[in-house]
Design a protein around this nucleic acid. Structure first.
Lengths: 136, 136
DNA sequence: CGTCATATTTACGTTAACGTCAACTTTGAT
DNA sequence: ATCAAAGTTGACGTTAACGTAAATATGACG
């Protein structure tokens, strides 16, 4: 039969987590070691909560934007209730403002790049067409 | 028709290039070794043309989007007159279409991330405000 | 109970993208 | 002519972000 992972809890094993997000166990353990994820333990085994899943979503998205794991770790502080003192909150706020500016700049940059790439695409298509026309 | 002997440097030395783009000599030499740049030589010294500058602009932008140098190298093929045969052009076209899709996906993703980040910012600002209110 | 799949820790290996030195050579200015 | 500045080629070092392999543990199942 199948291994019935009938989980009454809303936590995922490391394998379920990997399947859900398309990453390897090594990656999840690595992220935990870097304090990006904080899975619970059932004995020695990791159990990933909903919160971990939310964080992993943000981590992977951040990576797609070219952010380093350290950048991402600091950003994740915002989603934590951990900011228990004023100084912490202030710093988190500062970092977030900085990242926001970064991302908006990146967005503008991206628009330019997309426009240019489209232009070049048309160019290349033209060259291909002329190639074909000359081929007969 | 036109005279072409000018003293105005149409090319830049490696140092001028570094100052203009905020990179190190090592980086430029590295990019050359990876066939991303093709500076001319005056004896043993490198001279960077306008074309090299255009390419470097694209390289640095690509990096900001999280593309690898290899990804970027392939994309740069589009800006070359090097696509001398049909197969080459076709492949370049294919790669460009792929990157374009990637970038448009990234843009959509970025919009979501920006919106979420703004939401969290408001949250954090609220927490800070409450902290201050409680501090008196 | 023994087996098997799944998990864990430890630790060394790998790739990309440069940094950093060392040991020349070249060139412009004095 | 010389001397410092700027440039060159190796070649080894470094960091981030994992990969990979070995030895061990644990829990479910027949």
């Amino acid at each position: 039969m199948e291994t019935m992972t009938r989980t009454t809890t809303d936590t995922l094993t490391i394998r379920q987590m990997c399947d859900a997000f398309g990453v390897t166990p090594r990656t999840l353990r690595f992220y935990e070691s870097k304090e990006l994820l904080f899975p619970l333990r059932q004995g020695t085994r990791r159990l990933f909560s909903h919160k971990d899943r939310a964080r992993l979503t943000l981590i992977l998205r951040g990576k797609r934007f070219g952010f380093s794991l350290e950048d991402i770790r600091q950003l994740l502080g915002m989603y934590d209730p951990a900011g228990s003192n004023a100084a912490q909150l202030e710093k988190t706020h500062e970092i977030a403002l900085e990242r926001l500016a970064q991302m908006e700049a990146q967005r503008a940059d991206l628009d330019i790049a997309i426009a240019e790439l489209k232009g070049q695409l048309i160019e290349v298509q033209g060259r291909i067409a002329r190639f074909r026309a000359a081929a007969e």
